[in-house]
């Protein structure tokens, strides 16, 4: 489902003397449907960078990032947009939403964007928020005022609202208590079971051991660190 090969990237800082910082060299990995692949490596090795490149958030300088039948590294913006809408989900560490929008709508939005009927989308959102133990009294409120852990769970609910065939998870269990961590891990297992291809970063080793089919050490792709 996710196929990466020869992927390279530099950051060029034009306003700091044109400094060129190589961050990725010849990365390659693949994630099959029903698989969960964990990215490991020291902080700064490029785990998040790789995830962001898969999502199209960072530009690739060279290489292929195939998600389904789209090469994200070459695709036009609207192809990436369509991919993100229907195929590729992303749970980032940060919640970015329009202030003032109720939590329930925030979670339902990915489904509404796909044209799912409003009631059905809201039903799915209620279901997920309930499972993730967001108190019902908070649903009509904007998540911008929530605690870090609550925001993280809203973000997860949003990421799992639609059954994306491919899913990127950036530390989904960080800052969660045991009960909620359990819920998230179950969600990931359910997604695997329905055949989603998942690429994730888990600092929580126990979690990683439980859900990941295998791990890939990105240090191999880090310029200057690779053997």
């Amino acid at each position: 489902m996710i196929e990466i090969s020869n992927l390279s990237k530099n950051f060029v800082l034009h306003n700091q003397g044109g400094a060129v910082i190589p961050v990725m060299r010849d990365a390659a990995l693949s994630v099959a449907p029903g698989e969960c692949v964990g990215l490991i490596g020291a902080s700064g090795a490029g785990k998040s960078t790789l995830m962001r490149m898969v999502y199209g958030n960072y530009l690739a300088d060279r290489g292929v990032i195939r998600v389904g039948d789209v090469d994200v590294a070459q695709a036009a913006p609207r192809e990436v947009l369509a991919l993100r809408r229907a195929t590729l989900g992303y749970v980032s560490q940060f919640l970015r939403v329009v202030p003032r929008v109720p939590t329930l709508d925030v979670v339902a939005e990915p489904l509404l964007a796909l044209g799912v009927a409003r009631e059905e989308a809201l039903g799915r959102a209620r279901d997920l928020l309930g499972r993730l133990n967001i108190p019902e009294r908070l649903w009509p409120l904007s998540p911008t005022t929530f605690s870090g852990g609550e925001q993280q769970r809203v973000n997860i609910a949003r990421g799992f609202a639609h059954g994306y065939p491919a899913l990127l998870l950036d530390e989904p269990t960080a800052s969660l208590d045991a009960a909620n961590r359990e819920v998230v891990l179950t969600l990931i297992e359910e997604a695997k079971a329905r055949g989603a291809a998942i690429l994730g970063i888990f600092h929580d080793e126990a979690a990683r051991a439980r859900v990941c089919t295998r791990v890939v050490d990105v240090t191999r792709f880090t310029p200057g660190l690779a053997a």
């Binding site: 958030n57 960072y58 530009l59 913006p77 990436v80 947009l81 970015r96």
Partner: peptide, 30 residues
């Protein structure tokens, strides 16, 4: 929050264009 895609203009020229979050998070032009 609003735009899917973004064009950046300077002195009448488009210096960069792409997905909004990509242009903002990984800007290529100085």
């Amino acid at each position: 929050l609003l735009a899917h895609r973004l064009m950046v203009m300077k002195s009448g020229h488009v210096v960069e264009a792409g997905l909004t979050d990509q242009v903002l998070d990984d800007p290529q032009h100085g």
